[in-house]
Simulated assay, not measured.
Amino acid sequence: MGILKDIYRPEWGWQQTLHRTRADGTQEPLHAPEVAHAAQKSGQRVASGSESLAGISPTRFITVTRNANQNISHLNTHVIARAFDTCPGDCAERRERWWALWNNLKEQVSIERAAGFNVVITGDWNRRLAPDGWSPADIHSTPAMRGRCC
């Protein structure tokens, strides 16, 4: 977070979304922050991802940044770890949160596509391609995967 604050300074035109404002007005740090230049960014919001799991995972969010001049919406998130591959015993709770975020992400993609934007998604899925056929490309009916890690 410190690197983002140092490199992308507001006085240079960069806008940072490092926190989410809750309904009660308190701010909570985002674990998947977003940085975009004011000259490019035309809109931004933070959507709900999944609820926290005490002692295991913080509340997760989805950052959505629209760049109208490029017709791109960038969505970024980070889902709960160890819900599938190496689940330590609280599998049902972890999987519930993993799928909640996945479904919320799909909803955000649909919103952006309906608004006419091309969508770029980045994040940490904390899941490998699965034998049951799951793939990050399942996020939309007409995806185009351009790369993946791990």
Rank of each mutant, 00 (worst) to 15 (best):
R97L: 07
I80M: 09
K106R: 04
G116E: 05
A100F: 02
N69F: 15
N71M: 15
N104H: 01
L75W: 01
S73I: 14
A81F: 06
A83R: 03
F84H: 14
S73A: 11
N118M: 08
A81G: 08
K106D: 01
R94S: 08
W98G: 03
I72G: 00
V109T: 03
R94N: 04
V109Y: 07
N67D: 10
R66T: 14
N103C: 02
W102K: 13
S110G: 06
A114E: 14
L101Y: 11
N118Y: 01
A115Y: 01
N69D: 15
E107T: 06
L101R: 12
D85M: 00
R113W: 08
F117C: 11
R94D: 07
N69V: 08
A83G: 08
K106N: 11
A114M: 15
I80R: 10
R66S: 10
Q108V: 05
I111R: 06
Q108H: 14
T63Q: 08
T86Y: 07
W102H: 10
V79W: 04
N76M: 00
R82N: 11
F117S: 14
N67T: 06
R94T: 11
F84T: 13
E96N: 08
N69I: 14
F84V: 12
R66N: 13
A83C: 09
Q108S: 13
N67L: 14
D85C: 02
T59I: 11
C91D: 10
I80Y: 13
N76C: 05
A115E: 04
T77M: 15
N104E: 06
C91S: 12
A115I: 04
V79A: 12
N76K: 08
P58N: 01
A81M: 01
D85A: 01
T86C: 12
I62T: 03
V109R: 05
H78E: 07
